[in-house]
Design a protein around this nucleic acid. Structure first.
Length: 472
RNA sequence: GCUCCCUUCGUCUAGCGGUUAGGACGCUGGCCUCUCACGUCGGUAACAGGGGUUCGAAUCCCCUAGGGAGCGCCA
């Protein structure tokens, strides 16, 4: 038997990180066992389902690299299958028509709540003859006694008494099938062997198993993964900030970082923290998934993202960085090779967005000096070092504009003035970058280029003169 | 209210009857150093509470507390 898993989102919004993690686990389980992973769109709620959402979900999955082998299948295109299943249950006497009014159901519910018992349908229409031509719903005849055992791959054995379950509606009065019926039919038709889904479905599982058995189908294995919480301990939602995976892409996170973060949320393999997708597939074991919900921690995601920016292939990072440069109005073609920028700056940014911002100086002059940096480093004492640097740099041929030679110039000026490196490099750095932080001064000068370097030193010298004039 | 699930440092987690309760993020101290980062060495901090079972419980059982989910003609 080949393993088949599925991801079955309802297209009512974007792919959020919780759904993405569920999809990832489902995907890893299938890949790990050499099986197939299918995508199914649960769009039977016509009111809320949108085509944009379908696109957004697929966009998110593609970005994360979660490729599916089959699908997307749309439930709205499978109504004939649901109707056939409902008819089968009717024929077998395992489903019945119900014409109970909303009022009666409400009264029943109120009475049950008042009596402190679980509200559920009382089976009033079981065995009653309901006019097929009058408005009615169809209910599933749930077994009255006995228990359903869910042998969950994550939770272990969970038992539900049938007496706790009621006769749920499987077809609405408008003729459309309901969720618990459609999942069951789809999972059976699509040959799903393992259902990996959020643990909010655990309570639905015994009902689904009962329907499956009534249809004469073998239930799949289940794995209910815990949910993801926000920093305040409540289920992760928009009010905790970004939840859509595409939003993380736009904020400058790498797919490999988000994937790595997500897989470690609720799953672990000893003490290992870093996993490539290939390693995840090789090492993943659904039984190692935790039972408890876990909290989304942006700090750790940042750490991983920085790690992947720093250690990933610079050419790859540069490609992903390019749109973020464009985002702040910079055309990377107008300056140094982005790959060199990534190599120089990679260790300094948590996100690509941040990487773009701290690298802007390589492509265009900054607006103004950072106030604190200028105050500390662009003072009269810096004039001579800057002047000498300018002179020394101006004499360099363009082909000598390289880290090694640039470094020598800085060293020479420091030696001549009997200053330590910092006294020369820092004013120079502020002059050229506008801020007190940048890669090594030689690399920085190389990235900025000769022309801009001289121009900016002049600007800094003018700034010092101006400041001196203002002070006297 | 009822049913089901969950509970190890602030956070992610290791642990599957015998450990000084380990790692990671964060925070923090030192080192490295032309700055910021990176790197590196160190520190901080946890078994929700109470009963059992056992020679011995973070590990097994029960209760309590606290979280969560479900109880729709939503999925």
């Amino acid at each position: 038997m080949t393993v088949r898993t599925r991801f079955a989102p309802s297209p009512t919004g974007y792919l959020h990180v919780g759904g993405a993690r569920t999809a990832l686990f489902s995907y890893l389980f299938a890949r790990k066992h050499g099986g197939q992973f299918v995508l199914r769109i649960e769009d039977t709620d016509l009111e809320r389902s949108t085509a944009e959402s379908v696109n957004a979900i697929m966009e998110g999955m593609t970005w994360m690299g979660l490729d599916y082998d089959e699908g997307p299948f749309y439930q709205t295109q499978r109504f004939e299958h649901y109707h056939a299943a409902i008819q089968e249950l009717m024929d077998k006497g395992l489903a019945y028509r119900c014409d109970c009014s909303k009022e009666r159901l409400e009264r029943l519910r109120d009475k049950q709540m008042a009596a402190k018992v679980k509200p559920r349908y009382d089976g009033h229409c079981r065995g009653r003859q309901v006019d097929p031509d009058a408005p009615h719903v169809i209910r599933f005849s749930n077994p009255v006694d006995g228990a359903v055992i869910v042998d969950d791959m994550i939770r272990g054995r969970v038992a539900f008494a049938n007496s706790e379950l009621d006769d749920l509606i499987i077809r609405r009065s408008d003729g459309s099938p309901t969720y618990n019926l459609t999942v069951v039919v789809d999972d059976a038709d699509m040959g799903i062997t393992h259902v990996v889904r959020g643990d909010d479905h655990l309570n639905n599982t015994p009902r689904q198993i009962n329907i499956l058995k009534a249809l004469g189908k073998e239930p799949p294995r289940y794995a209910h993964v815990p949910m993801i919480l926000g920093s305040d301990g409540s289920p992760l939602s928009k009010r905790h900030g970004a939840v859509s995976v595409v939003a993380y892409r736009d904020m400058g996170y790498l797919p490999e970082a988000l994937l790595n973060y997500l897989v470690r949320l609720g799953w672990s393999h000893g003490d290992q923290e870093m996993f490539s997708l290939e390693e995840m597939i090789a090492l993943f074991d659904i039984g190692d998934v935790n039972k408890a919900a876990s909290t989304f921690d942006t700090d750790k995601l940042d750490w991983l993202n920085q790690h992947y920016i720093q250690h990933g292939d610079p050419a790859h990072i540069a490609r992903l960085l390019s749109p973020h440069m464009g985002q702040i109005g910079i055309d990377p073609a107008t300056g140094p090779d982005l790959v060199d920028v990534v190599a120089a700056q990679g260790a300094r940014a948590k996100t690509l967005k941040e990487l773009a911002e701290i690298s802007a100086f390589c492509y265009r002059d900054f607006e103004a000096f950072d106030e604190a940096a200028a105050k500390k480093h662009l003072r009269p004492a810096a004039r001579e070092p800057l002047q000498r640097m300018r002179a020394g740099l101006e004499m360099l041929a363009l082909e000598d504009w390289e880290p090694e030679t640039l470094h020598h110039v800085v060293e020479r000026v420091a030696a001549e003035l009997e200053l330590n490196m910092g006294k020369v490099a820092q004013p120079l750095r502020v002059a050229v970058v506008g801020r007190a932080a940048s890669p090594g001064i030689d690399i920085t000068l190389q990235l900025v280029g000769k022309e801009a370097t001289l121009r900016r030193i002049d600007k800094a010298l003018a700034f010092i003169a101006e400041r001196e004039a203002a002070a006297s």
